[in-house]
């Protein structure tokens, strides 16, 4: 992996400086791609470490109702993978430097062939791929294509994962390891009780040098603080997507709502770490 990858630089910097970070998720094309571009700038201004840009898919089996609806809206608005790449490129051309991990089910990207998809994503200014229906077992062709294009691949650890599986995911990931905070689909609340913290601690131990990012059900600054007790980064998806959508059809209002919400969440990373 080239040392100039924005995501690796950003997450390594967190480790180096002993800070915690926030990775907001938005669905590309929800509200139109112009709004998506403006939102990327807002996330950067608000102090996000990196972001996850979701590629809408017709059959999102790991997502709850809020992100299903966001994908439906994005697809109904005519969002395409080419359009998403063009939006990322525009964001970069406008000076955006926020690291972007493209989050997509396998088919919309794999459909065009992994070498092509990775080369196009990298040329647009994407830094990493997160594929929720791609376990390490099926990862080889994607990893080869991503590496050739200079993209990170990010695999998952779940509460059901054995230590051996987590180890394989760590070895196959760069930038960070995506930790699914609980079993279930995106959106429902997660309680960071002793069991969850124990799991996060186990993963952090196995991840070693690789930063960890925990997601699923994080909705407030307090959640962010709790989630980053044993993880480097908190991921906020459903709560942010809901917040933006609730702001209504006006892009400026939605972007402003997103920026203030993410600022509030970023503040949650300032809590002292106990790990």
């Amino acid at each position: 992996m080239s040392a100039s990858n924005r995501l690796i630089e950003a997450t390594s910097a967190l480790r180096r400086d002993g800070r915690r970070g926030l990775s907001p998720y938005i669905t590309a094309g929800d509200g139109g791609l112009d709004r998506t571009c403006a939102l990327l700038h807002a996330l950067e201004r608000a102090g996000a470490t990196c972001c996850e840009l979701g590629v809408p898919f017709s059959d999102p089996i790991a997502d709850g109702p809020v992100l299903q609806a966001a994908a439906d809206r994005a697809l109904a608005a005519g969002t395409t993978v080419d359009g998403i790449f063009a939006t990322v490129k525009r964001f970069r051309d406008e000076g955006g430097s926020l690291p972007i991990a493209l989050m997509s089910y396998c088919n919309p990207l794999g459909h065009r062939g992994w070498p092509e998809a990775c080369a196009q994503a990298a040329a647009a200014g994407v830094d990493a791929l997160i594929l929720p229906d791609l376990p390490v077992e099926e990862g080889a062709p994607v990893r080869a294509a991503a590496e050739a294009a200079g993209l990170c691949t990010i695999f998952f650890a779940a509460p059901t994962s054995s230590d051996a599986r987590i180890q394989s995911a760590v070895e196959a990931s760069q930038g960070f390891l995506y930790v699914v905070g609980r079993t279930g689909v995106t959106g429902a609340g997660t309680t960071f009780d002793d069991g969850a913290q124990g799991f996060l601690q186990r993963v952090a131990g196995l991840a070693g040098e690789l930063p960890t990012a925990v997601g699923f059900g994080i909705a407030s600054a307090a959640d962010v603080t709790a989630a980053t007790q044993h993880a480097d980064i908190a991921i906020v998806g459903t709560a942010l997507v809901r917040h933006i959508h609730a702001a209504g059809p006006d892009d400026a209002a939605a972007v402003s709502a997103a920026e203030s919400f993410v600022r509030e969440l970023v503040a949650g990373t300032g809590a002292p770490s106990t790990s």
């Binding site: 089996i61 929720p132 229906d133 376990p135 099926e138 998952f156 779940a158 599986r165 699914v180």
Partner: peptide
């Protein structure tokens, strides 16, 4: 896990252990 080129295990990590 495959029949020729087809099949495989494209499942979320949570389902891999089950």
């Amino acid at each position: 896990t495959r029949f020729g080129d087809f099949g495989g295990v494209y499942a979320p990590e949570t389902l891999m252990a089950p």
